[in-house]
Lab assay of single mutants.
Amino acid sequence: MDVFMKGLSKAKEGVVAAAEKTKQGVAEAAGKTKEGVLYVGSKTKEGVVHGVATVAEKTKEQVTNVGGAVVTGVTAVAQKTVEGAGSIAAATGFVKKDQLGKNEEGAPQEGILEDMPVDPDNEAYEMPSEEGYQDYEPEA
């Protein structure tokens, strides 16, 4: 019985440690998101679009440190934060509304985080759909 109880105690310690790591990862992701939003706020009209992409990228980098179902929630929060940063930029006159959601080359930025393969159960990952990809044929 002692062996059984000791095993359960060790398992509990492992769960607590994993929860603490997840909590730490979420806190880091939130900190990076805040950094990115402050970065966007300090940019001029020309830099705002690039700044919004930076927020998304920093958040995406930190999301990889967070495991399990938390990833889905962090990704949703990050996307809403990026959308909010863009709205703030438009409201303050840093950028025109028609410039939001495009990178410096004018290509749409939507789907940055949505296409990231995420499995809350950590069982399997699927690649994003290939609808947006084109076949590449090298020139002879």
Rank of each mutant, 00 (worst) to 15 (best):
E123T: 13
V37W: 14
N122C: 12
K80W: 14
P128H: 07
G84W: 03
V95S: 15
A17D: 00
E114P: 11
G31K: 06
T33Y: 05
L8E: 00
T72S: 05
D2H: 10
A17Y: 04
Y136S: 11
S42N: 02
V26P: 00
A56D: 00
A19Q: 01
A140K: 10
L8H: 00
Y136M: 05
K43H: 04
Y39K: 05
K6F: 09
D135N: 10
E46Y: 02
I112Y: 04
T64I: 09
E110A: 15
V63D: 01
N122P: 10
A89M: 07
P138K: 07
E61K: 14
E123V: 13
E57P: 02
G31E: 04
V82P: 03
K12S: 12
V49P: 07
E123W: 11
G25C: 05
A53D: 13
A29M: 15
G106W: 08
A17R: 08
E20S: 02
E83R: 04
K43F: 12
E123D: 12
A90L: 10
V15H: 00
E114N: 13
P138L: 03
G51V: 13
E123P: 15
T72A: 08
V74W: 06
G51E: 02
E131L: 05
K96I: 13
G68N: 02
V77I: 08
Q24H: 05
Q79Y: 14
A11M: 05
G93P: 04
Q79H: 03
E131P: 09
V49A: 14
E114R: 14
P117N: 06
E130Y: 12
K6H: 06
K12T: 15
V15E: 00
A19H: 07
A107V: 08
V26N: 00
L113N: 01
Q79W: 04
E20G: 02
G84M: 13
E104Q: 13
V82W: 12
V74R: 01
P120G: 10
G106V: 07
S129T: 13
T92G: 07
A56K: 02
A27Y: 14
D98T: 14
L38H: 09
Q109G: 01
N122H: 08
G132S: 03
Y39C: 06
G86L: 14
K34D: 00
A69N: 06
D135Y: 09
D98N: 06
T75N: 05
V95A: 09
L113K: 13
K58L: 12
E137W: 03
A124E: 04
T33Q: 01
D2N: 13
A17L: 12
V40A: 13
Q134Y: 07
D2M: 11
E61F: 04
Y39L: 06
G31A: 03
A17C: 10
F94D: 06
T59F: 14
A124V: 09
G41P: 00
V70E: 03
G47C: 05
V49I: 12
G67N: 04
A29H: 04
T64Q: 08
K97C: 11
V37N: 00
E137Y: 13
M116Y: 13
V49L: 15
A53K: 04
V118C: 13
K12G: 03
V74M: 05
K45I: 02
A76G: 14
N122D: 05
K12W: 05
D98R: 08
G31V: 01
G51N: 04
S9H: 05
E20Q: 03
Q109E: 14
Q79N: 09
N65T: 11
S87E: 13
G132T: 11
D115A: 15
A30I: 09
G86N: 02
E131I: 13
K32L: 13
G68A: 02
A56M: 05
E130V: 13
K60P: 03
K60T: 03
D2V: 00
N65Q: 02
A27W: 09
E123Q: 15
K58D: 03
D2R: 01
M1N: 00
G14W: 06
F4P: 00
K34E: 01
S9C: 04
P128G: 10
M127I: 08
M127N: 13
A78H: 15
G111V: 09
Q79E: 06
V48F: 14
E123R: 08
K12A: 07
V3N: 04
A85V: 12
D119H: 06
S9T: 05
V16K: 09
G67V: 14
L100I: 02
K80I: 11
S9W: 09
M1L: 00
A78N: 05
E130W: 08
D135W: 05
V70Q: 02
K102E: 13
G86Q: 14
A91N: 14
P138Q: 06
A89Y: 06
V95M: 00
V40G: 00
T75R: 05
G7Q: 04
I112N: 14
G31F: 07
A27N: 12
E126G: 14
D135M: 06
G86F: 10
G41I: 04
K80A: 12
V66D: 02
M5T: 01
D135Q: 10
V48R: 01
P120M: 10
N103W: 10
G111K: 15
N122M: 08
L8V: 09
G84E: 08
A29I: 13
F4D: 01
G51C: 05
I88Y: 02
A89D: 06
T81Q: 07
A17Q: 03
T54W: 13
E61H: 10
T92L: 04
D121H: 12
E126N: 03
T44L: 11
E83T: 13
G132D: 07
V66N: 03
P120L: 04
I112F: 04
D115Q: 12
A107D: 11
D121G: 02
H50Y: 12
E83Q: 07
V118R: 14
P108T: 06
F94K: 14
T75G: 07
A19F: 08
A78E: 01
S9P: 00
K58F: 10
E57I: 09
G14A: 08
T44M: 08
K60I: 08
P120H: 06
V52Y: 09
Q134K: 13
N65A: 10
G68R: 14
G67F: 12
S129Q: 06
E13N: 15
V26K: 00
G7V: 10
A29G: 02
F94G: 13
Y133I: 01
V63R: 07
F94Y: 11
P108H: 06
E137H: 11
T64M: 03
E13C: 13
G41M: 08
G68H: 06
Q109I: 11
E126W: 08
A85D: 06
L38I: 02
L113C: 03
G106A: 06
D115Y: 08
K21C: 02
